[in-house]
């Protein structure tokens, strides 16, 4: 073998490098494996519901009413009852009645704050605001829940004269405190990703700072901003402790923001502890978990797709 062939066929990899590479690969795919396992587990357990419960029961159940001498279609969640009723409709209503207002509130303020941080704030203001946001993000949700339950609920009741002291709106306020820092961070990132060249182009055409923000930077980042909102919504759907404490937990079928509600998450958290393992009730709770997981999963996929769209649009 000549020197050159030797050089050309030389392996670049050290055995240790090979090992490290594999280890990194395994940690890289670990998250995929975990997600798949959780998914499988939830669905496997959830599907066992249908051994004894018909899919229609998840909407409502015909129950004979001795007072009315009739069969009545009951759309309710009454898991501990002589005739258990497992309608997920009130739970889904509850989840959306909390997550939707929470996302709206935190998006309005979060997008505003993100724009301020990325485009307007001086370096000094930014350096104070960002750690504060991180602090907010670090508050345990049980603390927020307690605050809502003990203080904010009274305020809200005085202000809106609501029938229920604990209601979906109080929960939504609490949840918006959780989603707000998430949305701010993601919006700020999306805006910062807009290349300086685009801003320069706008300025060079005689745009003011505000015109540049509204007509160039924000439109270019609109996918990233939408993704932030979607992720915030997913997070709001998944929030448990705050809603468990602040929404009153009455599983009502309602579209009234000021009514007490019970969310899917709070329902699982409240009932899972007492349920008999392997019972019908136990499997239904898993099914509710699986449905919730699917919703947040779809939201995450959507936001991913939306972000990729932005990258393509900007050729980044």
């Amino acid at each position: 073998m000549t020197d050159i062939t030797q050089e050309l066929t030389r392996k670049n990899h050290h055995p240790a490098e090979w090992l490290i590479e594999k280890a990194l690969f395994i940690s890289g795919i670990a998250s995929i494996v975990f997600i798949s396992l959780i998914f499988l587990f939830l669905f496997k357990e959830g599907m066992l519901t249908f051994k004894s419960v018909s899919p229609l029961d998840l909407i409502g159940k015909w129950v004979y009413d001795p007072y009315d001498e009739k069969n009545i279609f009951k759309v309710m969640w009454q898991s501990v009852s002589e005739v258990p009723k497992y309608s997920i409709v009130p739970l889904v209503c509850g989840s959306f009645l909390v997550a939707f207002p929470a996302t709206v509130i935190s998006s309005v303020f979060g997008i505003g704050c993100g724009i301020y941080l990325s485009e307007i704030a001086s370096a000094r203001v930014r350096e104070t605001l960002k750690p504060t946001l991180e602090l907010l993000a670090g508050i345990p949700s049980v603390v927020i829940g307690f605050l809502m339950l003990a203080v904010v609920a009274t305020f809200v009741q005085d202000l809106f004269h609501t029938k229920f002291r604990l209601n979906a709106f109080v929960g939504a306020l609490g949840v918006s405190l959780v989603t707000f820092p998430i949305i701010v961070t993601l919006v700020e990132e999306a805006l910062r990703a807009i290349p300086k060249e685009l801003r320069d182009a706008s300025y060079a055409l005689g745009a003011t700072k505000w015109q540049t923000i509204w007509k160039t930077v924000v439109p270019a980042a609109v996918s990233g901003i939408s993704a932030a909102v979607l992720l915030g919504f997913g997070r709001a759907l998944g929030e448990t402790m705050i809603v468990l404490m602040a929404t009153g937990n009455a599983a009502l079928v309602t579209l009234d923001m000021f009514s007490s509600v019970r969310t899917m998450t709070a329902n699982i958290a409240a009932e899972m502890g007492e349920v008999v393992q392997g019972s019908e009730h136990y499997y239904v709770l898993f099914l509710v978990g699986a449905i919730l997981f699917t919703m947040t999963f779809v939201l995450n996929i959507c936001s991913e797709v939306v972000i990729n769209k932005m990258r393509r649009k900007l050729r980044m």
Binding site: E197, L198, D200, A201, Y203, L205, G206, P219, A220, K313
Partner: peptide, 16 residues
């Protein structure tokens, strides 16, 4: 800047 226009080295059209 409306009187003095500018064209940059790297073409930078808006994503519009």
């Amino acid at each position: 800047r409306r009187i003095v226009g500018m064209v940059f080295q790297k073409s930078n059209p808006f994503p519009k």
